[in-house]
C-alpha cells in the first residue's frame, strides 16, 4: 500500500471516528426524551385531565404548573424592563467605562452558578419577610433572566447598520427617541427572541427556587407574598422521596416540563440561525 493509500485510509477512519463521537454526544438526548415519554405518559394517561388540574393528594400537579407559569411571568415582569435598558445602555455606550463593565458583568452573570442567586435572595428577602414567597422565587429567576435578555438586546441592536442611527439623529430626534422609536422597533424580532430564550431558561430552573419559592402543591397559589410551587422544584423533591408512587408523579411532571420547554424552545430555535446557550 502506498503512503498515499495510507493517508486515504486514515481519512476514512477519521471520519468514522468523529461521526460516531458526534452521534454519541447527541445520543443522551434521544434517550432522555424517550425515557421521559415512556415513564411519564402512562402516569398522565392514568390520571387524565386531573393530572394537569388536581392538587397533589388528588394525583395532580395543577398548583405546580400554575406556579411555574406565575413565577416565570413575575420574573419577566421584574427582569425584562431592566434587562432591556441595560442591553441598550451597553449598546449605546460601548466605549465608556461603565458600558464596558456592564458588558463584562452581563457575561459573568450569565455563567454564574444559579444556586448562589437563590441563597442571596433568601437572605435579603425570605429571612426579613419570615416566609418563602412567590415574589422571592420570581426575583431570583429575574436575576438569572436579566443577562440573557440584555445580551440578546445588545447583540440585536449591534446588527443595525450605522446609517439608520444617522438617519434618526438627522431628523432632529433625541437619543431616547432614536433608540426606542427607531432602532429598537427595527430589531424587535431579535429582542423578542432573547426574551423567549431567557423565559424558556428560567421556566425550567430549579436551584434558585430551592430556598426562595418554598413549594405549594396542595392548593393553588393565592398571593405573591406566600409560598408557591413549580414543576421543576416538585420533581426535585419527588426524586429524593423513597416512595415509588412519588417517582411516578415525578416522571409525569417531567413530561409536562419537557413539553413546556420544547414548546417554547423549538419554535424559536427553528426561526433562528444561532442561539447563545
Amino acid at each position: 500500500m502506498s503512503s498515499f493509500e495510507v493517508r486515504k485510509q486514515k481519512e476514512r477512519l477519521f471520519l468514522m471516528g468523529i461521526g460516531s463521537l458526534t452521534f454519541l454526544a447527541l445520543l443522551p438526548l434521544f434517550h432522555i426524551i424517550a425515557t421521559v415519554f415512556r415513564n411519564g405518559l402512562p402516569v398522565i394517561i392514568k390520571e387524565g385531565l386531573n393530572f394537569l388540574t388536581g392538587t397533589f393528594s388528588n394525583g395532580g400537579i395543577g398548583p405546580a404548573i400554575i406556579g411555574t407559569f406565575t413565577l416565570t411571568f413575575l420574573a419577566s415582569l421584574l427582569g425584562l424592563p431592566i434587562a432591556f435598558l441595560v442591553g441598550l445602555y451597553a449598546y449605546e455606550f460601548p466605549r465608556s467605562t461603565v458600558g464596558r463593565w456592564t458588558k463584562m458583568l452581563l457575561q459573568i452573570m450569565i455563567e454564574f452558578p444559579t444556586i448562589l442567586v437563590g441563597v442571596f435572595v433568601m437572605q435579603v428577602l425570605v429571612v426579613p419577610m419570615g416566609t418563602y414567597s412567590a415574589f422571592a422565587g420570581a426575583l431570583a429567576l429575574a436575576i438569572i433572566l436579566m443577562p440573557y435578555v440584555a445580551i440578546y438586546t445588545h447583540e440585536a441592536m449591534r446588527e443595525i447598520p450605522f446609517t439608520y442611527r444617522e438617519a434618526g439623529y438627522s431628523l432632529g430626534l433625541t437619543r431616547i427617541k432614536v433608540l426606542l422609536k427607531i432602532l429598537a422597533p427595527m430589531t424587535k424580532r431579535g429582542i423578542f427572541t432573547g426574551v423567549l430564550i431567557g423565559v424558556a431558561k428560567v421556566a425550567g430552573e430549579t436551584a434558585p427556587l430551592l430556598f426562595t419559592a418554598g413549594g405549594l402543591y396542595e392548593s393553588y397559589p393565592s398571593s405573591v407574598t406566600k409560598p408557591i410551587g413549580s414543576i421543576s422544584l416538585l420533581i426535585y423533591q419527588l426524586v429524593q422521596s423513597p416512595s415509588p408512587a412519588d417517582h411516578e408523579m415525578a416522571w409525569g411532571a417531567s413530561l409536562i416540563l419537557l413539553i413546556v420547554f420544547l414548546g417554547i424552545f423549538i419554535p424559536i430555535r427553528l426561526s433562528l440561525k444561532e442561539v447563545k446557550l
Partner: peptide
Amino acid sequence: ILSDVMGGLPTIIYGIWGAFV
C-alpha cells in the same frame, strides 16, 4: 438544533434521568 435543545433542556430533567436511568 439537537445540540442546542440539549443545551437548553431544564437541568432537573437531566437530574431525574440521571438518578433513575
